[in-house]
Structure formats: structure tokens, C-alpha cells
Design a protein around this nucleic acid. Structure first.
Lengths: 184, 184
DNA sequence: TCCAGTCCGTACCATCTGGTACATGAACCA
DNA sequence: TGGTTCATGTACCAGATGGTACGGACTGGA
């Protein structure tokens, strides 16, 4: 199953199209027309609409996971996701996430890649910084929730400054707790 | 424009149906068949598919806002939303949220009700407890983000205990900061 | 009695949907 | 040269879609 150059070109264009207007609400024909091909070609290369959705999910998850590796500093990571250029990616991610919640195409794999894998990675970072294994997972979960929750806010309100302020406030809470470990 | 008893009965059933399997992926005919009517009736009472979606959005937002008033204690509020009985509501909420992100039916009203109104309400509570106006909004935003982010996690993983632990950790961070106001 | 309004069923419409059949061209390898 | 594989275009299919036309049943009021 060679990735096939044509298929990859098509996938890239389809993702680009999905970034505008989402993918769930678009038919194969709409996507095809928008990227200058026929729905026949999408079916040829991806087998079915479902196949295209799965391919797009994988692309998004890979892209998102790539960001995880590039930035270790939480502030830089958050800035990357809240950059207006990343908004279409974020929106598409949320759409696919919601779709997966209702058992859409490959939802288990999607959540594995977009939730578990993230918690694992964030927890590993915390362990490397000296946090003990058990509470690292709890903190990682909270970190992820804060980021995703603020992203939901940002995509809806587009109030980037306010969202950033809330994130800084969270970092401050975390920093304070680190300086002064919880007594009792 | 009397609400019309028949319309209300139909809406209630349609929401019930939307809680299972979502609404975006279902056609008028599918919904109608599932609730024992014809798609003709849905169009008669809601004008269009769009009209039905808007009606469902309003129902969800009212239900969600109702919970806000009932519980002032953040822990009780969070428990309410993370109760397995509430999961279908949560899932539907996320689906409609994602739909609104791509300019779906009445997205501005939806975000107004589901984001701004919540931040306002949470901030008001904080002000009543003595927080100053400016930082109350920042904290409220973070509160909401934590809740929504953990909800995303919960709906995907269904690991309620772990999610609760992360929430408790957050309450602890907040509590610590309150006891010991940030120096410097 | 007739009229108006609400509610709903049947039948229909044009359009769009994902998917398929078939032919064709280009590229490679023998 | 001929055969094979990949890629693509055209045309088609059955079924589903949102929406409409029309008519009938029931109600309450005049």
C-alpha cells in the first residue's frame, strides 16, 4: 500500500479545504470541486467518504502531535495553538473531536492519539522535572484541560488577550504551588 | 407565535432523539421516524431543518444555564455535569459548539449563551466573594475552561475518577492561592 | 350552519448523495 | 512491441435529502 504521490497531494488539498468550512458538513463532491478534482478521484484514492475522514483525522492528529514535540515550554506551546494562523486547525480538531464523540470514523484511534497520548507526553515531562508519577498524570490532565478549554473559549470569542491572561493566571497558580508545596 | 403544545411535544422528543446519535448527522426524516412522526411535521412546526437546529440549541443552552443557577458550589456544579446521566447532554453540547464554530445556525447567539453568559455569571459569583472585578473575569474564564476541558477529556475517556482527581487538584491550587495571596 | 385556524397525512418535486461501471491514457517493464 | 499497473474522465445508478402542494380532520366561535 504505497502512499501514492497522487493520493498525498489530494489529501493535502482536502485537508486544506476542510480547514475552511469543516469537513462533516461537506459532501465528497463539494470537497472535490473546491480542490479541482472529481468526487470520483476521492473515492478512488480513499475508498469511501469514511476513508477520507480517517485520513484527515490522522493528518490532524499528526500535525497536533508534531507541535507537542517542537515546544517543551508550555507557554510557547500554548502560543502556538492560540495563534490565529492555527485557528482553522483548532476548529477542525474540535469538529473531528465532536464527531468522534458520536462514534464517528475511528473514534477510538482518534481519542487515543488526541487525549491519551497527550496526557502521557505531558506527564512524562513533569516526571522528568521531578514530579512523582501519580500526581504527574493528574497535573498533566489538568494542563491539557486548561489548554483545550481555553481553546474552546478562544475559538468562540476570539478574545485572544483575555484568554492569554487566563492562561497566565493558571501558570501563576501552578508556579505558586511549586514554590510552596501544599502543607496539610 | 404561540409556542403551540404540539410543537413543544415534538421539540422535546427531537431533543431526546438528538441526545442519542447527535443531530448534525441525522436527517429530518431520520429524526422524525425515530420520534414517531413525519419529516413533514418537523418542517411544519420548525419551518426548516435550520429552525429545528436553532430550537434544539436553545433548549440545550437553557438546560445548561438552568444548572448554573441551581448549584453555586463549584464542586456540586462539576459533579452535575460529569454525572453519566448528563453525558448525552454534554456530548450534544459539544457537537452544537463545534457546529457553531463553522458558522452553523445562530452561532453568535449560541456562543453568547454558552460562553459570555457563563463567564459573566461565574465572575459575578467571584465578585460577591470579594474578588476585584478585573481579576474575577480572568478567574471565571479559567474556571470555565477547566470545566469544559475536563468535560472533553471525560467524554472521550470516560475515566470519571481521574477527571475528578484533576478537578480536585485545580480546586486545591485555587484554594492555596486564596489562602496565600500572590506576593511579588 | 358556516367559517377560520390548527394540525397532520400523502404524494410529489428537483436536487444531491455516496458509490459503481466502463473506457482511456500515460508510464513502466518485458 | 505488448502487457500491466496507476490514474483519471464520463456517465450512470438507486436512494436519500429538504422542501412543497394539496387535501382532509378536528376544533372553537359566530
Amino acid at each position: 500500500m504505497a502512499p501514492s504521490q497522487a493520493r498525498e497531494r489530494l489529501l493535502e488539498a482536502a485537508v486544506e479545504q476542510a480547514l475552511h468550512g469543516g469537513i462533516i458538513g461537506q459532501s465528497l463532491r463539494q470537497v472535490a470541486a473546491a480542490i479541482g478534482t472529481s468526487h470520483r478521484m476521492l473515492l478512488y484514492h480513499f475508498g469511501s467518504r469514511e476513508g477520507l475522514l480517517v485520513a484527515i483525522c490522522n493528518t490532524i492528529n499528526e500535525s497536533v502531535a508534531g507541535s507537542l514535540d517542537r515546544w517543551e515550554d508550555p507557554r510557547a506551546l500554548f502560543q502556538h495553538f492560540t495563534d490565529p494562523e492555527a485557528w482553522p486547525w483548532d476548529r477542525l480538531f474540535i469538529e473531528l473531536y465532536a464527531n468522534a464523540l458520536f462514534g464517528g470514523s475511528g473514534s477510538e484511534e482518534f481519542f487515543e492519539a488526541s487525549v491519551q497520548r497527550w496526557i502521557d507526553a505531558l506527564a512524562r515531562q513533569l516526571v522528568e522535572q521531578g514530579t512523582d508519577e501519580a500526581s504527574a498524570r493528574v497535573q498533566a490532565r489538568l494542563h491539557l484541560a486548561v489548554a483545550r478549554g481555553l481553546l474552546l473559549d478562544l475559538l468562540a470569542t476570539e478574545e485572544r488577550d483575555e484568554v492569554n491572561r487566563a492562561f497566565e493566571h493558571y501558570l501563576q497558580l501552578v508556579g505558586q504551588a511549586a514554590e510552596r508545596p501544599p502543607g496539610v
